[in-house]
């Protein structure tokens, strides 16, 4: 307090000046229309800026919520896309091709209702390996979140793995970099079916087998999921053909094709678990077929 008083006394002229000016400006703004108008306008601009800044801070603080809501939105769009790929409607008023029983015709020909086949659950990778001979991922969602074994695991860049073991809160997924992994894929340009496996070594490269010789495979051809495996929706990008293929020494009628993965397996983070609603039905049908 004493120091404040000293300060006031030493800078008495300046302090008086400031006080008088504050009073003067108050009077000016209160009693002069021109200055009042300018002041109100400026005050509005400044308070606007201030409120804008406050909104920015609030936005920043709610980024986590925003990210969550965007993930939910992504899920919705991915589901829509995955399901849309299973509906083929060649012409508006001729006929519908029904695929995997996803279409239900309603009483009017124009109106169709779609039974969704795929459901997405967002998740994050909390563990990942790429250096072993058989690699696994751990994700932060489990049975409490509706995850069961044999669900597909994808990222926005492509296929990542398959859920194998499920705990209440976490799940283990077999990475695509696992020797038992078989992914049913298509060469997008030729619609040529093949099987994608990993033979170890380079974690960015997988091997595509069982594509017959009569398909002219070029470097850069896109490799997408076939939709036949019931684990992944159709047409999810997996990777691109790395180089011109050679013949499979074990099986001379087929190519052996190196595929560079679109998803860098070393940096896996935001993931979606793919739930095929009809998996058990399709699986039991498969089992019946095997018995015959």
């Amino acid at each position: 307090m004493g120091k404040l008083l000293q300060l006031l006394l030493r800078n008495g002229g300046f302090m008086t000046f400031v006080l008088v000016e504050v009073l003067c400006f108050y009077i000016i703004i209160k009693y002069n229309e021109d200055q009042n108008a300018i002041f109100s306008h400026t005050a509005t601009v400044f308070s606007g800026k201030l409120l804008d800044k406050r909104r920015q801070v609030a936005d920043y603080l709610s980024l986590q919520q925003l990210a969550d809501s965007l993930r939910a939105e992504n899920i919705r769009i991915n589901e829509e896309l995955a399901n849309a790929r299973n509906i083929q409607v060649p012409y508006r008023d001729t006929f519908f091709i029904r695929n995997l029983d996803t279409l239900l015709l309603s009483d009017s020909l124009r109106r169709i209702s779609v039974r969704p086949q795929f459901e997405f659950i967002s998740a994050r990778a909390v563990g990942n390996s790429i250096s072993g001979a058989n690699n696994w991922l751990i994700i932060n969602k489990g049975s409490n979140d509706g995850i069961t074994p044999n669900m597909g695991l994808v990222s926005k860049n492509g296929v990542v793995g398959i859920i194998r073991h499920v705990g209440p809160n976490f799940s283990m997924a077999m990475s695509v970099l696992h020797r038992q992994m078989r992914i049913s894929v298509n060469l997008q340009r030729h619609h040529a079916l093949g099987s994608l496996i990993w033979e170890g070594g380079d974690p960015a490269i997988m091997t595509l087998k069982f594509v017959p010789h009569h398909f002219k495979v070029e470097k850069g051809d896109a490799v997408v999921t076939s939709g036949y495996s019931q684990l992944f929706p159709k047409d999810i990008l997996v990777g691109h053909v790395e180089e011109k293929p050679g013949s499979d020494p074990e099986n001379p009628y087929f190519w052996i094709i190196k595929v560079r993965l679109n998803q860098d397996m070393a940096s896996v983070n935001d993931l979606y678990v793919v739930n095929n609603i009809f998996y058990s039905e399709l699986d039991s049908l498969n089992l019946k077929a095997k018995d015959e």
Partner: peptide, 18 residues
């Protein structure tokens, strides 16, 4: 008829004088 205007300038001049 400009309440505060010359007062403000006068107070400033008083300070500027020193």
């Amino acid at each position: 008829g400009t309440l505060g205007l010359h007062a403000s300038a006068g107070a400033f001049s008083g300070f500027a004088r020193s």
